[in-house]
C-alpha cells in the first residue's frame, strides 16, 4: 500500500511540474502582451526615434527592428556559407565516425555552450585587432560566430539520419562525393530550413553579443561600417530609463520581439514536422 501511495504522490508532483512549465510559458507571454499591447502603436514600428525620444517624446524603434533584421539575415547567410560545407564534409566526404568528424561534432557542441557574452568579448577583441569600430559589420561577424555551432549541430542531426543507401546508390552509378552531397542537400531541405529558423531566433534575440560590437544609434545604418541599433538592446536601454513613457516603449518592443520569436518557432516546428513525414 505504501509503495502505491508513494507512486501516486510522485506522479502528482510530476504532473504538477509538467503543467507549471506550460503555465510559466503562458504567464510570460501574458505578462509581455498585457504590458506591451497598450503602448504598441503604428508609430513605434514605423518611425525612427525623433528628438527627445529618450525623454518620452515621439518616434519609434524602426531603427532597432531594421538593425536586428540586417544583423540576423547577414549572420545567418554567412553562417550557412561556413556550416553547410562543414556538415557536408563530416557526413559525405569524411569516413563515417572518423576522428575529424567526431572532433568537429564535439567542438560544435562545446561552442554551442559558450555564452554569448564570451563571443561578444571575443568579437570585440577581433574588432580592435583589425581596427574596426562598433559597426554593422562587427556585429554581424560576432553573431555569425554565435550561430555557426547552432547551424552545424542542427543540420548535422538531419544529415546523419539520411540512409546510407542513398549515397551507395549514387556511388554505384558512378557518381562522385560532390554529386552525392547535392542529393543529400535536396533530401535535407526541411532540416536546413529548421536550422536557419533556429539560428534566426537565437540571433535576433541575443543582446550580449551585439552589446560590444554593433553599438547603438538612432538612425538606420546605410553601410556596413556604421553602428546599428538592435531590438534586444532597445528593450534593455529603454527599460533602464526612469521615464514611464520610455519604459512603456520597452514593453512594446519586448512584445514585438516576442511575436517575432514565436512566429519563427512555430514555422520551425512546421518544417521539422514536415521533415519527419519525409523520413524514409
Amino acid at each position: 500500500m505504501k509503495r502505491k501511495l508513494e507512486e501516486q504522490f510522485f506522479k502528482f508532483l510530476m504532473i504538477l511540474c509538467t503543467l507549471s512549465i506550460s503555465g510559466i510559458l503562458l504567464m510570460i507571454i501574458w505578462t509581455i502582451t498585457s504590458k506591451g499591447a497598450g503602448s504598441l502603436t503604428w508609430d513605434i514600428v514605423s518611425k525612427i526615434p525623433e528628438g527627445g525620444f529618450y525623454i518620452g517624446k515621439g518616434g519609434g524603434i524602426l531603427n532597432a527592428i531594421i538593425g536586428s533584421i540586417y544583423i540576423t539575415i547577414g549572420a545567418t547567410i554567412l553562417g550557412l556559407l561556413v556550416s553547410i560545407p562543414v556538415v557536408l564534409y563530416i557526413n559525405v566526404y569524411a569516413k563515417k565516425n572518423s576522428w575529424l568528424a567526431t572532433t568537429t561534432r564535439l567542438t560544435s557542441d562545446i561552442l554551442f555552450g559558450i555564452p554569448s557574452i564570451v563571443y561578444g568579448a571575443f568579437g570585440f577583441t577581433i574588432m580592435i585587432y583589425f581596427g574596426l569600430k562598433t559597426s554593422l559589420l562587427a556585429g554581424t561577424i560576432t553573431v555569425t560566430l554565435l550561430v555557426i555551432p547552432i547551424l552545424v549541430r542542427t543540420m548535422d542531426e538531419v544529415f546523419r539520419v539520411v540512409p546510407e543507401d542513398i549515397g551507395n546508390a549514387v556511388y554505384s552509378l558512378g557518381g562522385t562525393r560532390w554529386e552525392t552531397a547535392k542529393i543529400m542537400i535536396r533530401q535535407c531541405v526541411p532540416g536546413i530550413i529548421t536550422a536557419i529558423l533556429l539560428s534566426f531566433g537565437r540571433a535576433i534575440g541575443d543582446a550580449a553579443c551585439v552589446l560590444f560590437t554593433a553599438g547603438y544609434t538612432d538612425s538606420i545604418p546605410t553601410s556596413l561600417d556604421q553602428p546599428t541599433a538592435t531590438l534586444p538592446l532597445a528593450i534593455f536601454f529603454q527599460l533602464s530609463s526612469p521615464i514611464e513613457e520610455v519604459q512603456n516603449r520597452a514593453y512594446a518592443a519586448a512584445l514585438i520581439l516576442t511575436i517575432i520569436v514565436l512566429i519563427i518557432s512555430f514555422t520551425a516546428k512546421y518544417f521539422s514536422k514536415k521533415l519527419s513525414k519525409n523520413k524514409i
Partner: peptide, 21 residues
C-alpha cells in the same frame, strides 16, 4: 512544444518578465 518555445524565448524577454513579476 511549450518546453521548446520556452527555450526559444530571448534572454532579454526573461529579463523584462523578471523585472515585472
Amino acid at each position: 512544444p511549450p518546453i521548446d518555445l520556452l527555450s526559444g524565448i530571448p534572454p532579454v524577454i526573461y529579463g523584462v518578465w523578471g523585472v515585472l513579476i
